[in-house]
């Protein structure tokens, strides 16, 4: 409605402001009529005023019909303009809602260039983006208000819609359909950036995680043992980190976790402290989240977090 950065949102905003002003004006007119009706001095000539009133009522009804008709027509045009986006050369992203995070899959005709990530979407400015909606459990709703309105993610009902960012920016979106306990903390980040930056990001994301083969520095050894913690503890049962043995898709893909701005589906900024807090006790941050608390020694935790932070 406000702050449009994308084509669709801009079209909606263009319908919004005139609608708001016209309806506000009508509202004020109705209130003035009411106030006058209450306060006006009474005439004696009742019959004449009855006829005159009937004319006013008729005029008001006619005005209502005309205004609503005009509104309906502008609504139609807006809806068509939104649907009529240029679709050449688009990026296709499948967004899957899960309790309570987002799986994000970029498709590409070359299988090696397909990319799976989570909770943070990057899109190139100026290029159309096709969003394929799907859900793995209950209904969620995808909403980045700077770019477009909402679209529900309905299990068993894959569908698609298009959007386009026209200027760069970082946006916070939040799930808009009640989906259970942590609906409140199911957010995501969308980064609209220039094409070159987007391509650079994309290529980086495609690479697998690099675990230092031999521990030369202390930092490297910390990362190595963090990796070992990850693949020996429960983490491996739910998460994927490409380049390691962790390959489960119950939870978000963590291959480039450190490159993301937020963790736990937009609930905390991605800092060392927050990460540690999350890994040890996700329930403290997001009660009900489908990740169990983890019992780790301080040393294990230290190493694990270093490893996670290395996943740039």
């Amino acid at each position: 409605m406000t702050d449009a950065f994308g084509r669709q949102a801009a079209l909606i905003e263009r319908l919004w402001w005139p609608t708001l002003w016209v309806l506000t004006a009508i509202y004020i007119a109705v209130m003035i009529a009411l106030a006058y009706a209450m306060l006006r001095r009474r005439h004696v000539d009742e019959v004449k005023s009855e006829v005159r009133t009937a004319r006013w009522v008729g005029a008001a009804i006619a005005g209502t019909v005309v205004i609503l008709f005009a509104y309906f027509i502008s609504d139609l045009f807006t809806a068509r303009a939104i649907a009529g986006i240029e679709r050449k050369d688009g990026v296709t992203i499948e967004v899957t809602g899960l309790q309570w995070w987002w799986r994000v899959e970029y498709s590409d005709s070359v299988p090696e260039r397909r990319l799976t990530t989570a909770n943070e979407i990057h899109i190139p400015v100026g290029r159309p983006v096709r969003i394929i909606t799907s859900s793995a459990d209950v209904i969620h709703s995808f909403w980045i208000r700077e770019l477009h309105g909402k679209r529900d993610l309905i299990p068993g009902d894959k569908s698609e819609f298009w959007l386009r960012a026209d200027s760069a920016g970082v946006f916070r979106g939040q799930c808009a359909e009640f989906c259970g306990l942590e609906h409140a903390k199911m957010a995501l980040v969308v980064v609209a950036e220039p094409e070159a930056q987007f391509q650079a990001w994309y290529d980086r994301q495609l690479s697998a995680a690099r675990v230092p083969p031999v521990a030369v520095t202390r930092a490297d050894s910390l990362i190595r043992s963090g990796h070992d913690v990850f693949v020996t503890k429960a983490c491996v049962m739910c998460h994927t980190i490409r380049g390691t043995t962790a390959g489960s898709s119950i939870g978000p893909d963590l291959t480039h976790l450190a490159s993301r701005r937020m963790i736990a589906a937009g609930t905390r900024t991605n800092t060392r402290g927050n990460l540690a807090g999350w890994v040890v006790d996700p329930q403290g941050i997001k009660p009900g989240a489908l990740m169990p608390p983890n019992n780790l020694t301080p040393a294990e935790l230290e190493a694990l977090i270093s490893f996670l932070e290395s996943l740039k």
Binding site: M1, A9, L11, I12, L15, W16, T19, L20, L23, T24, I26, Y27, V30, M31, L34, L68, Y71, D75, T78, A79, I82, S141, R145, H148, G149, K150, R151, A176, E177, F178
Partner: peptide
Amino acid sequence: FFFIFVIGGMTGVMIASVPLDWQLHDS
């Protein structure tokens, strides 16, 4: 009633529009 309901009616007309409702729905 007049003061309050007509505001609600006006917002009803706003969300009756598909594009506006895409933004305002479930908010």
